[in-house]
Amino acid sequence: MGIIKKKDVLYVASLARIKLADGQIEGFTGQLDSILDYIKQLDEVDTESVQPTSHVLPMVNVFRKDDVKPSLPQEKVLENAPGKEGYFFKVPKVIDGAEK
């Protein structure tokens, strides 16, 4: 236990752009800590010279031809937008660099 601390949870939440409610942080930290503690058992497995599996199928070289397909009509593109102006999506002002 004590694998993940409150400050780690806050850092990771900020990376994930989630503002946690103050009351939530303690509880989350405890729950995540016990999950990570359970996950620690993976250390028992000898994975020396084992290749990681990121795809279970042994497939390679799946391509598409460089052929143009119709785009989506602009009305459809913006149909679901919570904020739009003309054919643009509209978001709160980006103060350059500050959010990147």
Binding site: D67, V68, L72, Q74, G86, Y87
Partner: peptide, 17 residues
Amino acid sequence: CGCSTTFGNSPNSQTCP
């Protein structure tokens, strides 16, 4: 995706899901 790379002037006209 199959969207064309020759950009139109109108925003979001060369886009797909």
